[in-house]
């Protein structure tokens, strides 16, 4: 744990804040949880940088996938889960393809996002998708312009999906409710209002 400075000048306390990493900063189960959810071997990372070098997001942001893997190894759960860069992975899997240690860094990121969601850290757009699917079965639902175009093409206005067969939607809602996903999405979105 960082040692509090307690200086009378709060600004100085912040500027000179203790920045040591100490072993007690490590969250004991973080690595284990990341590896279980991501089904990969984060602890085998030797920090070569192949992942960041492969990453389309790295050259245009401060997102460094290598650092997230390091945080997994060192148990730096808070740093990892509260870093907004966590959501800049496009899941292109180039790092996973090239990792010489046969780790799947992309799946480490996915696991961390899952853990962040448990703490209700999640960008709004992800939750909007959940709400759309709960309602229609589609992440990108049909609309009137499209319906007209479909008919022009000789297709039915509604595709052969939940859009046409609404009787399947309760099944989808049951699955999402099983995990409490809709309620949680509503709740988080409401809090953010």
């Amino acid at each position: 744990m960082a040692k509090a400075k307690g200086y009378s000048d709060e600004n100085l306390s912040v500027r000179l804040a203790d920045r040591y990493y100490r072993t007690e900063d490590a969250s004991p189960d973080f690595l284990k949880n990341v590896e279980k959810i991501g089904m990969t071997i984060a602890h085998m990372c030797y920090q070569c940088g192949t992942c960041t070098g492969s990453c389309p997001s790295a050259p245009r942001s401060s997102y460094r996938i290598r650092k997230f893997v390091r945080r997994a190894v060192l148990g730096l759960e808070n740093d990892a889960l509260t870093d907004p860069d966590l959501w800049l992975c496009t899941t292109c899997y180039s790092c996973t393809d090239r990792c010489p240690r046969d780790i799947a860094p992309t799946d480490i990121i996915m696991a961390m996002r899952n853990l962040a969601f448990k703490r209700e850290i999640v960008p709004r757009n992800f939750l909007n998708t959940v709400q759309f699917i709960y309602k229609t079965g589609h992440g990108v639902p049909n609309n009137d312009v499209n319906r007209a175009a479909r008919v022009r093409l000789g297709l039915e206005a509604e595709p052969e999906t939940t859009a046409k067969y609404a009787e399947f939607i309760p099944g989808i809602q049951k699955i999402l409710d099983h995990y409490g996903l809709k309620d949680k999405a509503d709740e988080i979105l409401a809090e953010g209002q």
Binding site: T50, C51, R64
Partner: peptide, 10 residues
């Protein structure tokens, strides 16, 4: 293309 891991920069 790689990362200079010491700088943390691609």
């Amino acid at each position: 293309l790689t990362e200079d891991t010491l700088l943390g920069q691609p």
